[in-house]
Amino acid sequence: MDKQAVLFHSLEGEKIFFKELRVEGAEEIHHYASDQEVSRFIGWNLMRTLEETSQFVELMLKRESAGTHLYASIVEKSTQVIIGTAIIFNFDQEANQAEIGYVLHKQHWGKGYGTEIVTLMSDFAFYSLNLHKLHAIVVHANIGSARILEKNGYKLEGRLKDHYFIEDKYYDALLFGKITNM
């Protein structure tokens, strides 16, 4: 595993910390990956069985080994339970930028965890990976995620009309970006 992945897996905040994604954590990940409300707007298919979740974790680990993605399990400090997944992906070496993504168990929505996750990922990307820009794409109905990005200084840069078709309904994609202030 490369140095950057090791650093990403060791990020720590006030209420949460990141750790290496592992197949052994699939059962905890399945608690939110199998929740219709959680998976609805994140770009993952709903995981119906623990086996599906385990296979998806294996796919994520292959992507990380290939160097195309960085993944971390998000752990709540007070319980030591995995409550989400953080992702940095779609690296563009020439433009020196990447995309971020995150998913959080719905029991932990609205408690400041998402804001802390994005802060940790942004600081890591700008100061450890020396990226120039980060972006995130959010389904417009995912108001909580848009708010998290705005709290972290991300600016709405664009809107793609009817970009997503989810549950027989069209949704716009909101494009958020943040440029380093280094």
Rank of each mutant, 00 (worst) to 15 (best):
D2C: 04
K3P: 03
A5H: 11
F8I: 08
H9W: 12
L11M: 10
K15Y: 05
I16Q: 04
R22P: 00
H30P: 04
H30D: 08
D35R: 05
R40A: 03
F41H: 14
W44S: 13
R48T: 06
R48P: 00
E51N: 13
E52Y: 07
F56P: 00
F56T: 07
V57A: 04
E58T: 09
L59M: 14
L59E: 11
K62W: 02
R63W: 04
A66D: 14
L70F: 14
Y71H: 12
K77S: 07
Q80W: 02
A86W: 00
I87K: 03
I87V: 15
I88F: 02
N90A: 15
E94K: 13
N96Q: 08
Q97I: 04
A98M: 09
E99L: 13
H105R: 03
H105Y: 06
K106M: 00
K106D: 01
Q107D: 14
Q107Y: 08
H108L: 03
K111A: 14
G112T: 02
G114R: 03
T115V: 11
V118C: 08
V118Y: 01
S122P: 00
Y127F: 09
H135W: 15
I137E: 11
V139R: 10
A146H: 07
L149M: 03
E157K: 13
E157A: 05
F165P: 04
I166N: 13
D172H: 15
F176E: 08
F176Y: 15
F176M: 12
M182D: 13
M182W: 03
